[in-house]
Amino acid sequence: MNNLHIYDNLLLFTFEIENKSKLPYDIDYIRYYIIDKKTAKLTASQEVDQQALFSENYSPRIEGNGRMKYVIAFDKFTIPDEKVFRIEINEKNGGRHVLFDLENSDIVNVEDI
């Protein structure tokens, strides 16, 4: 994540994904959700999906040794202390899987545009 801003009631995230491989990275899906930080074994975990309102400059493919920088917007939200906002990126027909977590402190210290 490069930047996080707030504009009216929108949270605007700027992400940059770099493919350091020579093989293209075809994105199967990107999922945004809130989940418990830690769960004990045999304990139920609740996941709450966050629906993006719009995105800009998103491409489902990152060429070899390339990068993609895109902006995505959500309705404003906060995260309870025992949870994280998780971004999950899965490769289509591949094994490259990326997880990235943000905590409430990352979101409440957001800058205005």
Rank of each mutant, 00 (worst) to 15 (best):
Y29N: 15
I79S: 02
E103S: 10
Q46A: 11
K37V: 12
Y7C: 14
I72L: 04
P24D: 14
L10R: 05
L42T: 07
M68C: 06
I27F: 00
K38A: 03
S59L: 08
G64F: 02
I107M: 05
K22L: 08
A40W: 03
L10K: 06
K37E: 12
K69G: 02
I62R: 00
L11D: 01
Y58V: 11
N19I: 06
I89H: 01
S21G: 09
N90H: 13
L10Q: 04
E63N: 11
R61W: 00
Y58M: 10
F100I: 15
D28K: 10
F15C: 07
R61N: 13
I34S: 02
F74H: 00
V84N: 08
A52E: 13
G66P: 02
E18R: 06
V71R: 12
L99N: 06
G94M: 13
I79M: 08
V108A: 01
L10D: 05
L11C: 02
L42Q: 09
K22T: 11
A52L: 10
H97P: 04
G95E: 13
D36W: 00
M68I: 07
F54V: 05
K41P: 00
L102R: 07
N2V: 15
N65P: 02
E82P: 08
V110D: 01
F100L: 15
F54P: 01
E56C: 01
F13N: 05
F15V: 08
H97A: 07
E88N: 11
E82C: 05
I35S: 15
P60Y: 03
R61E: 13
Y7N: 15
I17H: 00
E91K: 08
Y33D: 14
L11P: 01
N90R: 15
R31L: 05
F77A: 08
Y7F: 14
Y29K: 15
I89G: 03
T14L: 04
D101C: 02
N57T: 03
N90M: 14
I89A: 02
D49I: 12
K41E: 01
I107G: 04
K22I: 10
N109V: 05
F77T: 06
T43D: 11
N104G: 02
N19R: 04
L53P: 03
F77V: 10
I30S: 13
F85R: 01
T14Q: 11
D49T: 11
P24E: 13
E16M: 10
V110A: 04
L12C: 05
K38R: 06
K41S: 01
D75R: 12
L102H: 07
I79C: 06
L23K: 14
K37Q: 10
L11T: 01
Y70S: 11
D112E: 12
R86T: 15
Y25S: 04
V84M: 06
N2D: 15
G94C: 10
I62L: 00
